[in-house]
Design a protein around this nucleic acid. Structure first.
Lengths: 134, 134
DNA sequence: TCACGGGATGACGTTAGCGTCAAACATATG
DNA sequence: CATATGTTTGACGCTAACGTCATCCCGTGA
């Protein structure tokens, strides 16, 4: 219950790497791409909760199938002053586009699953007739 | 209505490329990866309807987010004799896995869309207060 | 003091899936 | 015949997103 454990504000690169199960290399890479801008103490990176929050957004973006470049634009929306309508529009469009893609994928997947199921059925039939298998 | 147009059995590489809006390079690439095995007349590739059908499966596999390697395994299921249960199992598992991924993505997307919608709202508010823009 | 655990650069390597020439041959056509 | 069009096989190029060294620096505890 000490706030040093759950509410702390400073993280080392390895802390975040471990927490989100990614490599420190990946984190440094995101920084070179401008997605993260941790402070430094000497040369050592020091991450704040804000940086951690951004990392979470990055990882979600990746799960969603967006490129780091896209994610970068998305993150810029959180940087208050750059909230230009054109930017917002672009991003919303990309999300819509991706959503359309995913819907198409779901449809395709259903078809594929149906086919696989049938093939599986045929395979079983065949096996029950020719019991010997490698 | 002549059967030369809709029911023909022979295609040049460019025919298929145009029909599916991909490059001839891509088609040759799929061949080097063993996904297609067109016949040859001299050195020129000649595709039959069967090859065309395989190409359709390849493209669907790609839309589904599978690698060419995965698609290759999938296609092998259609080559009758190699219908080993282990193979079928692997493929079905991969499909299930992908389906799970897609479901997670859909959930994430909904969250993201909600956030974007909110950001868009904030942006509009701000714009209506400070009318001057770029 | 010295080894040890982290952290920080580079910088080159890697995989996937083609793109992009280059060079050469075949065929059809004016 | 000259040109245009389509095909072939290399072979190198390219992007994304890191992985994998190699090298170096820094603070700490036995």
């Amino acid at each position: 219950m000490t706030d040093t454990d759950e509410k702390r504000d400073l993280f080392a690169i390895a802390d975040l790497a471990k927490e989100f199960d990614i490599s420190t290399r990946a984190i440094r890479f995101y920084e070179t791409k401008g997605l993260l801008k941790p402070e430094r103490v000497g040369s050592t990176r020091v991450f704040r909760r804000r940086d951690r929050a951004r990392l979470i957004l990055i990882l979600r973006g990746k799960r969603l199938g967006f490129s780091l470049r896209d994610i970068s634009e998305y993150l810029s929306l959180y940087d208050a002053d750059s909230t230009r309508t054109a930017q917002v529009r672009m991003l919303v469009d990309k999300v819509d586009e991706r959503l359309t893609q995913l819907e198409a994928q779901m449809t395709d997947l259903r078809t594929t699953i149906a086919e696989l199921t049938e093939i599986r059925g045929l395979a079983r039939e065949r096996l029950s007739q020719a019991p010997k298998e490698g």
